[in-house]
């Protein structure tokens, strides 16, 4: 159940963005990726999720020994992979409850589990929402439509809590959150931590890592992992900035 990225290169609109990423997240571990704006963090997240237009030009990604790059996005989800988007997408006309139930049932089908009917689903969703301090009317609204920035991020974490992935990428889920919301989001991630779950937490700020304490911290610079270390690396970056890494790399 290890996620293994080797020599990964990728380009967007013919422009090379990832220039050889090597990274391994063993089962049960949470790793953080930090890096300045434009360093390719979201690109890495999208490549892992299989977004079109993000063209892999070399290298490999495996999860649990399977070739991830050969799979469609929904097959990656079925494998247990999840991406919490930096900018969650709005789906006008699609009710949040219908969306969440459709997604959950799609995954349950692939796992050979019976689908949940509307009542069973509501019970589960309410439980998870309470834990995330989300008002229940967020189920009735269109997916992310008219949600505040914080509500969108919490909705991403709700999806993660419902879909129970084995490997999650959280792309700047902390940005735009006040300290209370940040705690709630962190609790949501920490609740999943265990031997059957691993995560890649992308963030700009060391702040989140006070709540989700990572096993390893990596710095992405110019499309490569420029440095890796323990949780203390985040504090160092907070103090000295990325310049020190650049100089060392």
């Amino acid at each position: 159940m290890t996620l293994k990225i080797e020599g990964l290169t990728a380009e967007v609109e013919g422009k090379p963005i990832l220039r050889g990423v090597d990274l391994e997240v063993p089962a049960g571990e949470v790793h953080a990726i930090m890096g300045p704006n434009g360093s390719g963090k979201s690109t890495l997240a999208y490549v892992l999720a299989g977004r079109e237009g993000y063209e892999v030009t070399g290298g490999s990604v495996t999860f649990d020994g399977q070739d991830v790059l050969a799979l469609e996005p929904e097959e990656r989800a079925a494998l247990g992979m999840f991406l919490a988007f930096q900018y969650p997408v709005e789906l006008p006309g699609v009710g949040n409850a219908l969306f969440l139930r459709t997604a959950l049932n799609a995954l349950r089908r692939t796992r050979g589990e019976p689908e949940l009917d509307a009542m069973q689903f509501l019970k589960l969703a309410r439980e998870r929402m309470r834990a995330l301090h989300m008002p229940e009317d967020m189920l009735k609204r269109g997916v992310n439509v008219g949600f505040s920035g914080g509500e969108k991020k919490r909705n991403e974490v709700l999806q993660m809590a419902l879909l129970q992935p084995r490997f999650a990428v959280l792309d700047e889920t902390d940005s735009g959150l006040d300290i209370d919301a940040l705690r709630i989001v962190a609790d949501g991630v920490n609740a999943l931590r265990g031997p059957g779950f691993s995560a890649l937490v992308i963030t700009h700020y060391q702040r989140l890592l006070n709540y989700i304490v990572p096993d390893r911290v990596h710095v992405l610079l110019g499309g490569r992992i420029a440095r890796s270390g323990g949780p203390e690396l985040a504090q160092e970056l907070e103090r000295a900035g990325y310049g020190s890494v650049q100089a060392a790399a």
Binding site: E52, E74, A77, F85, V89, F99, A103, A106, T110, Q159
Partner: peptide
């Protein structure tokens, strides 16, 4: 495309994702 991709990352197969968006 972004909406389709979002749905698919949640495990919704492409045909079902299209159907959901058409209905919407």
């Amino acid at each position: 495309h972004d909406q389709l991709f979002y749905l698919r990352t949640r495990g919704v197969p492409e045909a079902e994702a299209r159907s959901l968006l058409i209905e919407a």
